[in-house]
Design a protein around this nucleic acid. Structure first.
Length: 321
DNA sequence: AACGCGTGGAT
DNA sequence: TATCCAAGCGT
């Protein structure tokens, strides 16, 4: 269960002392007394939701979950915290170790930023994960979403946490629309703010419940409205689930720089010793593209020039030290 | 404010 | 097979 124990719903229904001026807490589409019981029953038992998971564990999970599905994060997350249980443990190792442990979660720059984040926490914050949104926002790899996720889920604060799931649920259930995937905005956070229950602990659970609803039921491609706890109040469902406009076409994958960079990183991760630069360049047919991609990796700090091979004198590369 | 940035499973 | 999509961030 998400956080153990029965959710305290006493403040879920608007009281005389706390008038429900928005009309959304008690009887709105996303009423607290609908979401929290559903979450308690159906929420996944994920390790970063365990009460024993500290702020560092929550932070690590949030960075890993940026654009990467839960099932792929789980094993890497466990190994990561086993190896680096505190920020200072990670900071003490080379960034290349973080990139290698990151394995194939994708966007390896996140591993680099998480390492930089651990270093900043160690050097600038005494090894303690900051507990306020403004300070969290100063850390590498932590943006508007992740800062609030850490504040809410690790420190149980009453802050609006809006990710792509929450945004989709809000857009559908409250505004009755179905928009293509778009980044969360200040407006989305303001809207969620009006829905959050007054109690901080409960509001943290509420945000987690909204995210879970978007992840399990109110999904982008095929929402399972028949199992939705707020189906009868969802404006989008009541309006006939009108499909939104198609979103801008995404970049085709085959032959992109991203694909080539990915191949080069796979070679670097797998290598026990420095890799000949020519071996990296060989992953692409187009030599101009290969050079451009390798230069990009060097500029990003994901690859580092190493000493020439003693036997051949060939130029070599490694993960950053 | 668009764009670039990995990876792999589902449809 | 091609496309979509998964707890965004930094520039």
């Amino acid at each position: 269960m998400p956080s153990g124990g029965d959710p305290d719903l006493r403040v879920a229904t608007a009281s005389a002392a706390e008038p429900d001026t928005q009309g959304t807490r008690g009887d709105g589409a996303l009423a607290v007394d609908r979401l929290l019981p559903w979450f308690a029953e159906h929420g996944r038992d994920l390790p970063w939701r365990d009460p024993d998971a500290g702020p560092w564990a929550v932070l690590v999970s949030e960075i890993m979950l940026q654009q990467t599905p839960v099932v792929r994060v789980l094993p890497v997350y466990r190994a990561w915290l086993q190896r680096w249980p505190r920020p200072a443990d990670l900071a003490a190792d080379a960034p290349g170790d973080a990139i290698r442990a990151w394995d194939r979660l994708g966007y390896p720059r996140r591993a680099l930023r998480l390492h930089a984040c651990a270093t900043a926490i160690t050097v600038d914050h005494g090894g303690v994960v900051p507990d306020d949104v403004p300070t969290l926002l100063t850390l590498p790899g932590i943006g508007e979403y992740t800062a609030r996720a850490v504040a809410a889920f690790a420190f149980r604060q009453r802050v609006p946490v809006v990710d792509t799931n929450v945004r989709r649920v809000l857009t559908r259930a409250v505004r009755g629309r179905d928009e293509p995937r778009e980044p969360a905005t200040t407006r989305d956070r303001a809207e969620l703010e009006t829905l959050l229950p007054p109690d901080p602990e409960q509001s943290a659970r509420y945000s987690a419940a909204l995210m879970e609803l978007g992840a399990l039921i109110c999904t982008a491609r095929s929402p399972d409205c028949d199992r939705c706890p707020v189906q009868d109040r969802c404006v989008w469902h009541r309006g006939g689930r009108v499909a939104g406009v198609a979103r801008r076409a995404v970049q085709t994958w085959h032959g992109t720089d991203r694909q080539i960079r990915g191949r080069m990183m796979a070679v670097l991760r797998a290598a026990e010793h420095p890799v000949a630069t020519t071996d990296l360049l060989a992953v692409a047919d187009d030599t101009d593209q290969a050079r451009r991609c390798l230069d990009g990796l060097l500029a990003d700090g994901l690859a580092t020039a190493a000493a020439p091979d003693p036997a051949t004198g060939a130029e070599t590369m490694t993960l950053p030290r």
